[in-house]
Design a protein around this nucleic acid. Structure first.
Lengths: 203, 203
DNA sequence: ATTCGCCCATGACAAACGTCATATCCCTTT
DNA sequence: AAAGGGATATGACGTTTGTCATGGGCGAAT
């Protein structure tokens, strides 16, 4: 009987080790490689051709979401399961668009992990039902690419002038985009807008 | 031979389970209880009187830092080890002030966890050396309590007017505090100031 | 071929923000 | 007793931000 071969990608080394330990407990699952970032994970998947890739989203080098898309493209036999802290509708949507088969939250009981891996391995989808609902009624990302870029920088504390210079725009244009983003998000200033967008996974 | 009794506190259930699995691998360590927040952890420590408490910092109900202080006060025989994502000088300082014996980062290799637990159990201190240095030269928290309160709210996107109302102050006073905080932190606006303070663990 | 959405810009105005000087009150340290 | 620091306030000033109307260019979809 062959075990389900799993690659785990997670940037916090301690958590990576712990998750691997958790999976190794299961008699029918084997962790064949570990990766500390997206780039590394892609290489590992190429080398080990695992059945399942369990990956975090926010990682250096390459996001779990881009990683999912790459894996889907280059190694379609490997199914991707996202394992993340963030219950953000936008992340879920992007994950599914990128071809991920599962989306599991880190605040679910640890007993669910092995189960989710098995299901994804069998070709089933695993998606947190509450989150799926939330994703549904929070609607799609209303921001344009430009608005996202600008809002992101504004959230970091940059002034309109700095942002304008950085993106080679006029300062008025930057203010226009921010105003537009704020109205789309129902925020009363740039900071609140950035926080809102972040919390929905749109930044 | 009795095992080292450990309580683990961590709000992300999946990570909690994984860390416990990691510790359970060790032949000389036993996880005698798990907690999903600070309040629960305090109760568990009271009930099990463990040798070591391994705890996260940012948790609902009660912060790992307050928890550390409470445990030090009420169950001094239990040594506290902080296990956190955040390499923030201010957190480290507060942790040590609260009587924690160890401060370990989640991006250290998982192999270090058991070792750190053993050392702390033996009465040794375990502190990330890089972080200790950073804590040293980033100096102490320069903010006053009021500045902290106000900066925190400003970082959430609230306007001076809203903050003033919330804290029963005049709007001008709020602007004064923010101006003062910005100058202390070397920031050029409230958002940058809030980000800086956060990154140092002062918020 | 026209419409629509996105990109980018300008100008003008009101509101919010950041700075500074100055002042009072209170508490602790010297 | 004096000095210092924190909390609070006001007024005044210049700068930044948020809003709105209005415009042009471009590419994709109808």
């Amino acid at each position: 009987m062959k075990k389900i071969q799993v690659v785990v990608a997670e940037d916090q080394a301690m958590v990576l080790g712990a998750l691997a330990a958790l999976l190794e407990i299961e008699p029918d699952i084997a962790v064949c490689a570990r990766a500390a970032n997206g780039r590394e994970a892609l290489a590992m998947v190429g080398k080990s051709k695992p059945d399942v890739l369990v990956t975090d989203i926010e990682m250096p080098e390459m996001t779990g979401l881009t990683l999912a898309a790459e894996v889907k493209e280059r190694y379609p036999q490997t199914r991707v399961m996202i394992l993340t802290t963030f219950a953000r509708p936008g992340y879920l949507r992007r994950a599914l668009d990128a071809g991920a088969k599962g989306y599991l939250l880190k605040d679910r009981p640890s007993a669910e992990l092995a189960d989710a891996v098995r299901r994804v391995h069998q070709g089933l989808r695993v998606v947190d039902p509450d989150l799926a609902l939330e994703a549904w009624d929070s609607g799609p990302d209303p921001l344009t690419e430009r608005e996202r870029q600008i809002l992101w920088r504004a959230g970091e504390g940059k002034s309109s002038g700095e942002i304008a210079e950085e993106l080679h725009l006029s300062e008025g244009t930057v203010r226009n985009y921010l105003s537009e983003a704020m109205s789309k998000l129902g925020a009363s200033n740039r900071v609140e807008a950035a926080r809102l967008a972040r919390s929905r996974g749109w930044l």
